[in-house]
Design a binder for these strands. Sequence first.
RNA 1: GACCCUAUCGUCCAGCGGUUAGGACACCGCCCUUUCACGGCGGGGACCCGGGUUCGAAUCCCGGUAGGGUCGCCA
Length: 453
Amino acid sequence: MSAPVRVRFAPSPTGYLHVGGARTALFNWLYARHTGGTFVLRIEDTDNARNSQEAVDVILSGLRWLGLDWDEGPLTGDADGPVRGDFGPYFQSRRGEIYRRRAEELKAKGLAYEKDGALFFRMTRDPVTIPDLVVGDVVRPLTDREALDPDWVLIRSDGVPVFHFVNVVDDLEMGITHVIRGEDHLSNTAKHIALFEAFGVEPPRYAHIPLILNLDGSKMSKRDQGASVQSYIDDGYLPEAVINYLSLLGWSSKTATELFTAAEIAPLFDLPDINRSNARFDLKKLEHFHFEHTRRLSPDRFVENGVEALRKAGIETAGFDPAYVRAALLTAQEKGKLFKELPVWTDFYFALDDAVAYEAEAKAKALIPAAVPIVSQLAARFAALPEFTAAALEVSLKGLAAELGMKVGALIPPCRVACTGRLVGPSLYHLLEVLGREKVARRLERARMVSGS
RNA sequence: GACCCUAUCGUCCAGCGGUUAGGACACCGCCCUUUCACGGCGGGGACCCGGGUUCGAAUCCCGGUAGGGUCGCCA
């Protein structure tokens, strides 16, 4: 029937991957996976001044982090490096010969002419109808400015071809069937369609997706909260959370659940279901998805991410028993915090010589003279426990509270601060079990002395 | 200035001529609870405005308004 779908993500290597670009890549990826088509990655590095291998690497690593694998395109940020696919080069900076050939074709057809050293395209004066899969048919007449001089530059006087030209030539040469891109390109599509017609070929199908704006409705620029994919990596978000959240910006599964992985979304995803209105970026909801996905994460991956997060915070876990590290980190999984915050929740497990760093407020509140008898009696009871388990510890602590005629809530803070240095943290009894008899004993003893002084 | 797109709770979505306008996030209250959370229960909160069409409009049409986008020898 219809030709196999070929879509592409064509970022310009500006040094960072914009969240809007990430969603464009995601929608292209989803459509390719939905249709069994091909997802192409092409680097639009015509603007030599700001191109570098590092800038391309940022794009590649961002996409890889998100799990958006491409079927064709560069394997590294090196424009002359290894690629996959038969439609290369995948860097526009390496496609000069193709652009020259296509420019000659237009000149031969009388549709392009030179003026002032630049090559101009003889643009149609008639309104162009843009059939869009998302918005419907859009009729784009010339604006008043354009009407003054409808022709536009294909190749600048310095010999560098402009975006509209290379974009169309590449889509044509690479056999792109569906152009899924931001709505900011909608008006310009008239130029692109006119060019395809000049080449005598059918334009691809277009799907212009709405933009992502800041929460206050302003346009999202580089410095805005959440604009860069790198910020999610740095803050320790789970990529599946970012994917999940982004997929729901402008698209809806129309099902009861909103919690999905990219692989689960692909079968449900289709172009006509995409919204027409812009969406605002709400970090709170992203955090919600992070929470949900984190709780569902396999223990192995959670521990792996956790160890890395601790390392970034300067806490080395290599010197500890792997089973201990694993058990320690896992007590924090249900909290669903960003991995950047994980050190605050688990650093006490790795305090050298059990010299727990007491948070000022926690110490002032819990490690006071009144805590001395509590801490020493707890220490005595814990020491006598046959089994050092969460369940036994709970019974023990609650039993002591009852005997002392005190509320359980009065014993908790001294014990928690003694062992963790903080007033909040993982479930107390579980954390005690993981720390183990020796560490808990040493920490209680130290807290007893600190409280008495 | 011209042209294009859009318009449902604070936010993201559902709705596609007849619904008590639904869900999620956020927010508020209560319960549970060793802290913070989780969880459970409950609550407040929206169809931008004005005209049409229709027996009947959130849904269709027109206008206005507002927001966004485009009109480069930037991408």
